[in-house]
Design a protein around this nucleic acid. Structure first.
Length: 566
RNA sequence: UGUCCCGUGGUGUAAUUGGCAACACGUCUGACUCUGGAUCAGAAGUCUCCAGGUUCGAGUCCUGGCGGGACAGCCA
């Protein structure tokens, strides 16, 4: 990752400013220690990538450390499957937590002791109120809450009940442990928040050891403290919780991390809510968590994005506190930028149209030399077979072209990439008037690479030899939603905004022979079309399946769009 | 009619902490090109939410508005 990152200047942001200031005052003896704390209840998405890059990136830049900690305090939602995928995704992104793989559940014993301490201090109590009673007594944002009738329960009684809770003597919901703070606080998080609830559930790590589980608000800050986290970076919605976390730390008299909140990433035409993503998976609207149209890291990886491009993307969107929506084009730019330098060029024809070169010798085959990557000479050259019968892209021919169309049309000339200039002499149609074949002539003098090939033509087309190419499947992806903010309108179901054309599967696309040795995950630029990678899910020994990662920048498409609007 | 947070080109992020508002994406020109890619050159677009105040000087400090967001799970 070093080369890539040296190039990108690290943008200053308010979090780095704070850290610089802390370093200046020698706040934690110059120590910088962050952590990435996912809950293992779903797959990581591009929003998490921002947080991962931030936390690991800062640790790296300040010679500090970054822990991976799973916030696994709710056994009913969490699964090992998610733990595994999260670890895989972080590694793929290029970050290393070394031996610091932690779990909030590692601290359940300690947390229990801390809770006992607060009860003994008279700062926590067992409440016997029902779910609904607690809800009612909490008040609203504009109205203060009411004290629970059990708020003044004697310390010894709370202690005893708490122990019995732990020992499994009560059913779910019978009691909760609450912090005793202030039911009239304007900050609702301070209205005697619940610290423990009874949940007779099997935990993916602790099994049946516990039947009481700490709430996130109780577990999180203390976990940070236990790990000696100096700067705990989290998203804006926890801003109102900070006073509570500080209160716990102060009452417990333990190490105090500093929480700093930043705005989460939003992407246009995308949803980031784990709940909604899960719904797409469960309803079968997408083909699993790693469907290439999903914003999850596993999907983005399958689609052909590189870790470098995601890291650069995360850097380029910056970090601040105001709500933001990043245009999807920023992300597309970052992959193109990386793939342009690294992807092998090949030729593939997605929607084939047959071309016969009438003046080309019947059985002749020429092996033409093609450049593998004009951005990187070390990637070398390859041979591409040329023969009398070819396929070109259907879109590259128009019988009645508009003025700015530089491609093939009757009587017009174009160059075939790495080959000859050809001229369209005749258009063959079927009974319905569909163009099914083009008859062209070639100019022998214009062979690519020879000195005599200086003749200029406006357009250059990609092509494959009909007798040498092979078939493959290509999947074209477009945005999953057709509005910029699919989750924005609470009145409308986000599923109403699904883009019906988000996936197009093309069978029998024509590939140049070189591609046949491609393996799962390999990335290519199909010249003039875009970046594609070999799909890891549907590719078999018999059939290659390609995912389109992103198109090339397409000025012609832009012109076409403008013309259709006028 | 509470508490907290946030308002800088279309989008996002900067501004040496009070000194001519910059960078990226996007948009538009042009050059070059055997990828309508890449590259290169250039342009438009922000009087920094509004109104006062402090100051020689305010995006930055103060006051008051306005606008947006978060908070009423035994979720995280």
């Amino acid at each position: 990752m070093s080369n890539e990152e040296n190039k990108t200047t690290v943008q200053s942001n308010f979090i780095r400013d704070i850290i610089d200031k802390d370093l200046g005052t020698n706040k934690h003896e110059g120590r910088v220690h962050t952590r990435f704390p996912p809950e293992p209840n779903g797959y990581l998405h591009i929003g998490h990538a921002k947080s991962i890059c931030l936390n690991f990136g800062i640790a790296k830049d300040y010679n500090g450390m970054c822990n991976l900690r799973f916030d696994d305090t709710n056994p009913s939602k969490e699964e090992v499957e998610y733990v595994d995928s999260i670890k895989e995704d972080i590694k793929w992104l290029g970050f290393d937590w070394e031996d610091r793989e932690y779990y909030a559940s590692d601290y359940f014993d300690q947390l229990y002791e801390y809770a006992v301490k607060l009860i003994k201090k008279g700062k926590a109590y067992i409440d016997s109120s029902s779910f609904d009673e607690i809800k009612t007594m909490r008040g609203t944002p504009t109205e203060p809450g009411k004290n629970s009738p059990y708020r003044e329960r004697p310390i010894n009684e709370s202690l005893e009940l708490f122990e019995k809770m732990k020992n499994g003597e009560f059913e779910d919901g019978k009691y909760v442990l609450r912090a005793k703070i202030d039911m009239s606080s304007p900050n609702m998080n301070m209205r005697d928040p619940i610290m423990y609830r009874i949940r007779h559930a099997n935990h993916h790590r602790t099994g049946d050891k516990w039947c009481i589980y700490p709430m996130y608000d109780w577990a999180h800050g203390q976990s940070d403290s236990i790990e000696g986290i100096t700067h705990s970076l989290c998203t804006l919605e926890f801003e109102n919780h900070r006073p509570l976390y500080d209160w716990f730390i102060r009452e417990l008299e333990i190490f105090a991390p500093q929480q700093i909140e930043f705005a989460r990433l939003n992407l246009s035409y995308t949803i980031m809510s784990k709940r909604k993503l899960l719904l797409l998976v469960q309803k079968g609207i997408v083909d699993g968590w790693n469907d290439p149209r999903m914003p999850t890291l596993s999907a983005i990886r399958r689609r052909g994005y590189t870790p470098e491009s995601i890291r650069n993307f995360a850097e380029s969107v910056g970090v601040a506190k105001r709500d933001n929506v990043i245009d999807i084009s920023v992300m597309e730019y970052s992959v193109r930028e990386h793939l342009n330098k690294t992807a092998q060029r090949v030729m593939a024809v997605l929607n084939p149209l047959k071309v016969v070169i009438t003046n080309y010798p019947e059985d002749q085959v020429e092996e033409l030399e093609a450049v593998n990557n004009p951005e990187d000479e070390t990637m070398g050259k390859r041979k591409v077979p040329f023969s009398k019968e070819l396929f070109i892209e259907r879109d590259d021919f128009m019988e009645d072209p508009p003025r700015k169309f530089f491609r093939l049309s009757p009587g017009n000339e174009v160059r075939l990439r790495y080959a000859y200039i050809i001229k369209c002499e005749e258009v063959i149609k079927d009974d319905d008037g569909n163009v099914i074949e083009l008859r062209c002539t070639y100019d022998h003098e214009t062979k690519s690479g020879t000195g005599s090939s200086n003749r200029k033509v406006k357009g250059t087309l990609h092509w494959v030899s009909a007798t040498h190419c092979f078939n493959a499947e290509v999947r074209l992806y477009d945005r999953l939603f057709n509005v910029p903010d699919p989750g924005g309108d609470k009145e409308v179901d986000f599923l109403d905004h699904l883009n019906p054309d988000s996936l197009k599967v093309l069978e029998n696309c024509k590939m140049e022979p070189y591609i046949s040795s491609a393996e799962k995950g390999d990335k290519f630029q199909f010249e003039r079309l875009g970046y594609f990678c070999v799909d890891t899910k549907y590719t078999t020994d018999e059939k290659l399946v390609f995912n389109r990662t992103v198109t090339l920048r397409d000025t012609w498409a832009k012109i076409e769009k403008q013309m259709s609007q006028n």
